[in-house]
């Protein structure tokens, strides 16, 4: 589903964010991407969205090499990938419901479908009371949940979440993780970048660990750190 083939990403001339990364994620997999701050997790996510280009190597999404996708077809790629951004990236001039609805609007879905689907999804992330609030009126954790809702409202084939529980209390975190697992169970490929050690250890999923831009570990049913 997603394949990194010897990918190196440099910012400027000498900041190495990723170095010779090889990674293959199969359809329907649930993968944790762990690593210290600055290890390159967000860079990897941005490469998959073709927000930035790799310096060397090739990235494939659904067997298409990203560098061969023309600019005008990038939106099509992104509609297939739901993404929860580390900094949420909500539209400040839209309410929670409108932000979620926007992800359906860009795919040209009917007004009626949007009106019925959005409240259901917001209810699922526990925000049915917050539908008409603007992002500035929401707490960090609430904004994060709007971002989660927006990422999977249009049922993408791939869901990427960059620190989806970073601002949440343990209880809500568990709720979000359960949601991600449920989404995974209906066949969606899920990639979660996180620092949340307890969560990773509890879920026993595949874990890919990054260190200074290199993949240092890749274990099925892994844990956050090497088992002692």
């Amino acid at each position: 589903m997603i394949r990194f083939d010897n990918v190196t990403k440099l910012y400027g001339r000498d900041t190495v964010a990723l170095e010779r990364v090889n990674l293959e994620i199969n359809p329907g997999e649930f993968v944790f991407l762990v690593g210290a701050s600055g290890s390159g997790k967000s860079t990897l996510v941005r490469l998959i969205l073709k927000e930035i280009e790799p310096s060397r190597g090739a990235i494939y999404v659904k067997d298409t090499r990203l560098s061969s996708i023309p600019r005008r077809h990038i939106p099509r790629l992104r509609r297939d990938i739901g993404c929860v951004f580390q900094d949420f990236k909500l539209l400040p001039n839209k309410t929670a419901a409108e932000n979620v609805g926007y992800a359906m609007e860009v795919t040209g879905q009917k007004r009626r479908a949007i009106r019925t689907k959005v409240p259901q999804i917001l209810d699922l992330v526990g925000l049915s009371e917050m539908m008409d609030k603007y992002p500035r009126e929401l707490s960090g954790g609430e904004q994060q949940r709007v971002s989660v809702a927006r990422a999977f409202v249009s049922q993408p084939r791939i869901l990427i979440a960059d620190e989806p529980t970073g601002n949440l209390d343990p209880e809500t975190s568990v709720g979000i993780m359960n949601l991600l697992e449920r989404i995974n169970r209906i066949g969606t490929t899920v990639l979660v970048a996180t620092h949340d050690r307890d969560m990773v250890d509890a879920m026993r999923k595949r874990v890919v660990a990054l260190e200074n831009g290199r993949v240092v570990r890749d274990m099925v049913k892994g844990a956050y750190a090497d088992e002692v």
Partner: peptide
């Protein structure tokens, strides 16, 4: 930044 976000969630240029 708003424009950037719209593009990242899959909006086409025209949209």
């Amino acid at each position: 930044q708003e424009i950037e976000v719209m593009k990242l969630v899959g909006a086409s240029d025209g949209f």
